[in-house]
C-alpha cells in the first residue's frame, strides 16, 4: 500500500518509490468548491519545498499551491486541462496534479499521516 502524507497547507504527497504524486486533499477540494481550472507547472521545473507550483481556480477564487516537497517535476496531470472537476470528484486519485522526483525524502517525515491529518482537519 502506498504511503500518503499531508501538509498543514492541505497538499498531499503519495509516495511511489522515489516519486511523489502531489495534489490537494479531499478536505481541501470541499473547502474550495467547484474547481474550474488548474494551472499546471512545467515538466522539468526544479522545486524547493514551499515554492509556488500551481494555481487552482474555483469560479470566485484562485488558490496557489505550494510544493510540500523538494524535487523535479517529472509529470503533470494533463487530464485536468480538459476536466478540472477531477480535483473535486477524485482529489486523491485521478485528480492528482503533478509528480515529483523527490530530492529530499526526509521532508516527508515532517508531514502528517492519515490519522494526524484527520485530526488536524476535524
Amino acid at each position: 500500500m502506498s504511503k500518503t502524507k499531508y501538509s498543514t497547507d492541505h497538499e498531499y504527497v503519495r509516495l511511489e518509490g522515489e516519486v511523489g504524486m502531489v495534489g490537494i486533499s479531499i478536505y481541501a477540494q470541499e473547502q474550495l468548491g467547484d474547481i474550474v481550472y488548474v494551472e499546471l507547472p512545467n515538466v522539468g521545473v526544479k522545486l524547493s519545498k514551499g515554492d509556488e507550483v500551481a494555481v487552482i481556480e474555483s469560479v470566485k477564487a484562485a488558490s496557489e499551491l505550494y510544493s510540500p516537497v523538494s524535487g523535479e517535476v517529472i509529470e503533470v496531470n494533463e487530464a485536468l486541462n480538459d476536466d478540472p472537476a477531477l480535483v473535486n470528484t477524485d482529489a486523491q486519485g485521478n485528480g492528482w496534479i503533478y509528480k515529483v522526483a523527490l530530492s529530499n525524502i526526509s521532508e516527508l517525515d515532517e508531514m502528517m499521516d492519515d490519522a494526524a491529518y484527520t485530526d488536524f482537519t476535524s
Partner: peptide, 12 residues
C-alpha cells in the same frame, strides 16, 4: 496551498 475560498457559491 493558501485555501482561498473567499467568495460565494456559484453553481445553481
Amino acid at each position: 496551498m493558501n485555501m482561498n475560498s473567499t467568495g460565494r457559491p456559484t453553481r445553481a
